[in-house]
Design a protein around this nucleic acid. Sequence first.
DNA 1: CTTAGATTGTTATTATCTTAACATACGGCA
DNA 2: TGCCGTATGTTAAGATAATAACAATCTAAG
Lengths: 211, 211
Amino acid sequence: MKKSVKVPAAVIRRLPHYLRILEELHGKGIERISSGELSERIGYTASQIRQDFNHFGGFGQQGYGYNVESLREEIRGILGLTREYKIAVVGCGRLGHAIAYFTNSFESTFVITAIFDISPEIIGENILGVEVQDVKALPAYLKENKIDIGVITVPKESAQEIADILTAGEVGGIWNFAPMDLDLPDGFPVYNVHLYDGLQSLVYYINHADE
Amino acid sequence: MKKSVKVPAAVIRRLPHYLRILEELHGKGIERISSGELSERIGYTASQIRQDFNHFGGFGQQGYGYNVESLREEIRGILGLTREYKIAVVGCGRLGHAIAYFTNSFESTFVITAIFDISPEIIGENILGVEVQDVKALPAYLKENKIDIGVITVPKESAQEIADILTAGEVGGIWNFAPMDLDLPDGFPVYNVHLYDGLQSLVYYINHADE
DNA sequence: CTTAGATTGTTATTATCTTAACATACGGCA
DNA sequence: TGCCGTATGTTAAGATAATAACAATCTAAG
């Protein structure tokens, strides 16, 4: 039922949010929900919710609403969360460590397959059942193992170098935590988590709260 | 020179990005830049750059371009990065730990003033020169100390409770890492870092890379 | 089986954001 | 000092996104 027209990025950004709410409803045993009720819970207008789902053909039934369970499955399907993704974390400092554990907690979908670092003190350590390898071994590792997502949690000085290795090693996408704009092949899937950018815009709103 | 019309959220989101590039240019000793050159570096169109800056009155000079140093100062001023912000981190697990160190690295702007946790094993530890306190002490602490930003790095089950304490304690804003939508007073400044949402939309683009 | 009420899918409208165009003003050189 | 080229500020147009409106259709009750 998928329409072939390109889905706006704004819609894709909202899908994980819908999914999060639906998991919650599912957990509470709620079986059906209308766009109006969902609107109250998620904060988007009912209109927007219906239009968002319509980009994929529409999942509801008139007079009834949406079935929580099946809507959840549809969204999981659209996002591609129905298979497993192998993750390699590059940079195992505090942030890399935290992200590795965080990601690993969604076991059936994301699996930490390898971890790399440059520091001799960390190399060899066992994290999440994976032995931390020397980052020098990364290119060779990628040649022999298919990795779906490379996580960059190294200092920004070496982030581009790692990005080059990851793309050359044909990872499917990059989850970047380095505070810089990576130079990547055109259209290469990347999600940037610019923590400091977010903190700075929060500061703006703190200073303009009453406007 | 500030115009009183409301600045679009999209513009505010870009300001930290501009700032990041300008810091870089400044570090390289580059003194002036045109919207065209900046466009190449940052990826927005020259038109958009000029229009963004015009929301604040415009910082350039015709025939010359923008002075890197003064543009940088203007943006820092708009965002409010010219004073110090006191930060309280609530939840000192792996992520809280990482965020605390990360934030603290911008010394003159953000200062970790207090850290709270619920676990007896962590309470009392010294992190960044701050003794980790029992989260029970948070309400009292906020009554006696002005905190600008509360960071929520606790599990989602207790995130709302912490958010309530932070707003009651009149923090200026909340930097939320819990994967849920906090219920906050209308217009209360908050920035959500929904890590899992980002990872999920990355997955979508990995599966639709060729579209 | 029929009908009232509810709720979607979808089209139309409005708002917002982005890009383009261009006149205006400044810097720098002859 | 005057002129040319450059790059902004600003207005206009276009694209995208969000909201509103409503007809189509399903549920559920009697």
